[in-house]
């Protein structure tokens, strides 16, 4: 996709106040009887427009839980989340249009997030037909957009007529990415979006995301356990551990001088080719 595609800038990024795009305050989410599992425990953070924030942390540290809350797919046990200055906690679905129009999500497990009875073509263009986006995207030709995004993630055009189960794991992950990018969102929240991709396709998707950030000011909230990817793509990092923020800062700073023991262990454990 290039900078002059249709649809650029229509999705509500006009406001230029100093108000952060997301403000998360003291967020807690517990699960189970008596809140036995504290998946998130008093997390506060801010996300600016155009920021490229990466969330890292060990398995089970609360990364997916956090972004599900930020996408208003789940409700916190306590705490506050505002998007564009408006609280989204406790809002009804029909009031969330302003969020749904701006934010797209790529889930961690692509297979369970793609409707098995829909063709890839209708899965990818579904966000274009959603009520929140239709008016903003009037000028967009869905078929042309479909071809563009499939090409951008290196899927063959004939993929559109096939069903999700007919694809490989990495191809399904790319279908999910194409779907999220189709409406040209202002914010992309992605949970391990490149973890199942071979190195070359991964490079292609990361280049695409970098281009979108540069050309459109896309805001990126990215969950990854791959520190090489994080260092390449993101400008700031949050390290979660057992539901709490263990460390945060600019990517350069966290990589050069990791403070938390967990961050140091993560950096030390990056596998190298060993012969």
């Amino acid at each position: 996709m290039s900078a002059d595609d249709a649809g650029g800038g229509v999705l509500g990024t006009s406001e230029t106040s100093s108000e952060p795009l997301y403000r998360v305050t003291d967020l807690t989410r517990s699960f189970g009887r008596g809140g036995r599992v504290r998946a998130l425990d008093g997390v506060s953070l801010e996300v600016r427009r155009g920021q490229r924030l990466c969330i890292v942390g060990e398995s089970g540290s609360g990364k997916s839980t956090l972004i599900r809350l930020m996408a208003a797919l789940d409700r916190p046990t306590s705490g506050e989340i505002s998007f564009e200055g408006r609280s989204i906690v406790g809002m009804r679905e029909r009031e969330l249009g302003f969020l749904r129009a701006a934010v797209q999500l790529v889930f961690q497990d692509p297979r369970s997030s793609l409707n098995p009875r829909m063709t890839v073509g209708s899965i990818v263009t579904e966000p274009l037909r959603s009520a929140h986006l239709r008016s903003a995207l009037d000028a967009v030709d869905p078929r042309q957009r479909l071809t563009e995004v499939l090409r951008a993630v290196d899927l063959p055009t004939d993929a559109a007529t096939r069903y999700p189960h007919e694809f490989s794991g990495g191809q399904r992950q790319r279908i999910a990415i194409a779907r999220a990018l189709a409406p040209d969102p202002a914010v992309l929240i992605a949970d391990e979006p490149v973890s199942a991709l071979d190195v070359s396709v991964r490079a292609q998707v990361l280049n695409l995301l970098s281009d979108l950030v540069a050309a459109r000011g896309l805001t990126l909230i990215f969950v990854s356990h791959d520190l090489a990817v994080v260092r390449h793509l993101c400008d700031s990092v949050i390290v979660l551990k057992q539901g709490r923020i263990e460390e945060q800062g600019s990517a350069a700073q966290v990589f050069a001088h990791p403070r938390a023991a967990y961050t140091q262990a993560l950096l030390a454990a990056i596998p190298q080719i060993r012969l």
Binding site: G57, E58, E192, A196, H225, L227, A265, A269, I270, P271
Partner: peptide, 9 residues
């Protein structure tokens, strides 16, 4: 694929 490097090791 879904594991961070410390758990992966």
């Amino acid at each position: 694929t879904a594991l961070d490097v410390t758990v992966q090791a």
